[in-house]
Nucleic acid binder design. Structure first.
Lengths: 153, 153
DNA sequence: CCTGAAAGTTGCTAGCC
DNA sequence: GGCTAGCAACTTTCAGG
């Protein structure tokens, strides 16, 4: 199931995180190896699921997604059926970029990316009509100071 | 500065978000066009900054990053120098995957990805020794229900 | 586990519709 | 603006040290 990751593997992952478009040769050179061994390591890590989707980061504002909310959710319902419906609702909605179940008195946090405040309200109304939640606090982002998907390898 | 984005451009962006590793030919076929026009659109959107970094999503848990915190920060200091030092501290630290300045009574939210709770404490102690903050609430993620960087185009 | 090379694909450019 | 054709560069595989 799990694969041992050594220092070279970590260098490869760091290089791919920084720029997945660069060629095998470039990665190989930057980690001090050559094409084939690097390629074999990448293949193994892909098969093990350590390396997942390859994607591009888009400029959300340029594409009209100008509002970003963090939503703190408390619920009184903790039965299995409620949770199943709630999770499904989150997974289905593309506005929900992140959803975490939390420890402590807040039960869930969401990151929701939408065109504007009105679009958020539409999302919010749709969500609470689908599943009952006890208390919702929306935090509006004024400025994205930092955003990265890179892990600090 | 800004570029007009039409329906074909959006299809291309959606395809690239879903899988940036697929070939130009595949993208062209899925949007109902062919290589060259698609390539020209991609180049324009890259130059306009709409298409940014190309990266891979890694399995954080498999790589030993088993703890994820959302950190809510209130501050009493709002002068320019404090803010400058605070922002710099966030940008420099690789554990901080996201940082937003908020509207409302909470001033900042961070998403911090670390090996374990002890590593979070190390980060926290280092941060508050660098810049004074009034109130900090850490929310520990128990389960990542959903995580995507894709915009709902 | 690495090196080197062969074979098939692809990215990117240029010229034509 | 889109399509066809072409070459250089790349990914991927495989035999051999």
């Amino acid at each position: 199931m799990s694969v041992r990751i050594d220092a070279t593997d970590r260098k490869i992952l760091a290089a791919m995180q920084a720029d997945a478009a660069q060629s095998l040769d470039e990665i190989a050179k930057s980690v001090g190896s050559s094409k084939t061994p690097v390629w074999n390591r990448i293949r193994k890590m892909r098969e093990a699921g350590i390396i997942g989707q390859q994607t591009v980061l888009l400029d959300a504002e340029a594409l009209g997604f100008e509002a970003c909310f963090f939503v703190l959710i408390r619920t009184s319902e903790h039965d299995a059926d409620w949770q199943r419906r709630f999770l499904k609702a989150l997974k289905v909605r593309p506005e929900v970029q992140e959803a975490h179940r939390l420890a402590g008195d807040i039960d869930y946090i969401l990151k929701v990316r939408v065109q504007n405040a009105r679009a958020y309200d539409t999302f919010y109304q749709a969500l609470i009509s689908e599943v009952k939640v006890h208390n919702v606090t929306a935090l509006l982002s004024m400025e994205e100071i930092k955003s990265t998907v890179a892990l600090p390898l």
